[in-house]
Amino acid sequence: MTDSLLRKLRRHRLLPLIAAALMLIVALAIGGAVLLPGVLAAPAQPLPFEHSKHVAAGVQCIFCHPGVQTSAVAGLPSLNKCMGCHASVTPKDPKDQADVNKLISQWESRQPIRWVRVFEQPDFVQFNHRPHVAAGVACESCHGDVAKMGYAQPYNLNMGFCLNCHRKQAPEKVTKLISCETCHY
């Protein structure tokens, strides 16, 4: 049976076609496996900063990003806020003191840090942090487990991701939550 099938394929010169199709699939798979981590990798930042160490030290998310409670944007802490702690607090690991020194020299040069934005939605998406935080959505449900990250890493926040959660809310809220104009205008 297998023999005759193989012979048939060979007679019709279909084997090269099948081989080419298989190679294409394998190439796509390998390409995806190689490229996708790159897409989701954390972009380089101007100053070494590790979320994990700050979370481990007991710093809450909203301590540095208080905007989430009252406004659309979370906000990044100013150098002032960084120095509020780092002027007196020394890192647990003495090796990290070199990084903190960079922060201090930045502070002394009176130049703000130009962080690279990680979570950026297209122009046509209007996102508001406040109602999400008010509804009790945990930060890590959209931003990933920041406690294990150095620099913040991108998270796959596409429309399906939003809708999957919006559809699961209370029925009287769903009408508004899945309505187009809630996010797009």
Partner: peptide
């Protein structure tokens, strides 16, 4: 839009 009862353009 059922939430605002206006016509929206996406």
């Amino acid at each position: 839009s059922d939430a605002e009862n206006i016509n929206v353009q996406v």
